[in-house]
């Protein structure tokens, strides 16, 4: 059994401007092979909401094919995802739909892939409480890479890992959340989502309420937090 709690909420800046949330997420919690995706449409691009949505679906498209083979590499998943995103966009200009993309994908063969293009957070808490954060390739002052902006395969931060084990918790977040998190409290955040939101009837709604009441002064970004775990 795999569980997920996730929500995207519009940030105060977009609310003020009457612009909808430009983050998107998608999760397929499955005991055989799970998928989790969060995307952050770049605020400066007019179609980034569509870009973020298309990227979550493109990740799922790519994953469905990729997970069938025990030989697929992390690079292969990205090689499938990028054209799938372009096709999903149809006639939307890519550069107007630029979006970051963070993917956790398990295959049917006992492996998982971390794939991250741009800023945001992908972290994992093991059953003992140790937290490992997947390093992003976003360098100083988050001048971020994104689908729809010039980049190469090398700009993706990729890694192969073991699939989620019992008691493990995965945390994915866009930068509206990750930039304000205390790194030392990541594990506690994950446990909070599992222990306090998990039992609720509509945990996503409760999480959205929390994200809307974000406690950091002057915060303005859209926010997405996705927590996936194996009880």
């Amino acid at each position: 059994m795999v569980r997920v709690v996730a929500s995207s909420v519009r940030g105060p800046a977009h609310a003020l401007d009457g612009v909808p949330c430009q983050d998107a997420w998608l999760a397929v919690p499955d005991s055989r092979a799970s998928l989790a995706v969060v995307c952050d449409g770049m605020g400066s691009r007019s179609r980034s909401r569509e870009g973020a949505r298309a990227a979550t679906l493109a990740a799922r498209d790519a994953w469905r094919l990729w997970k069938r083979s025990p030989a697929g590499s992390a690079e292969d998943l990205v090689r499938l995802l990028e054209p799938a995103w372009r096709l999903r966009l149809r006639d939307v200009p890519r550069d107007e739909a630029a979006t970051t993309c963070i993917v956790y994908a398990e295959d049917d063969h006992g492996r998982a892939v971390y794939a991250q293009l741009g800023d945001g957070l992908l972290a994992r808490r093991n059953a003992h409480g140790d937290v490992k954060t997947h390093p992003s390739k976003t360098d100083g002052f988050d001048l971020t890479h994104a689908l729809g902006t010039p980049h190469t395969l090398a700009d993706w931060s990729l890694a192969i890992a073991a699939p989620l084990a019992q008691g493990e918790i995965l945390v994915l977040a866009t930068d509206g959340v990750s930039e304000d998190l205390e790194p030392r409290r990541l594990g506690d955040l994950a446990r909070w989502a599992v222990d306090e939101l998990g039992p609720l009837r509509r945990p996503g709604v409760a999480l959205a309420r929390e994200l809307r009441n974000w406690p950091v002064p002057h915060h303005r970004d859209d926010k997405t937090l996705l927590v996936m775990w194996k009880p």
Partner: peptide
């Protein structure tokens, strides 16, 4: 639990603006 107001995120976030 559902109706209880929550503000737990404050415990996990920094309290200063960027």
């Amino acid at each position: 639990k559902e109706v209880r107001p929550m503000s737990r995120l404050k415990e996990f976030t920094t309290q200063t603006a960027r």
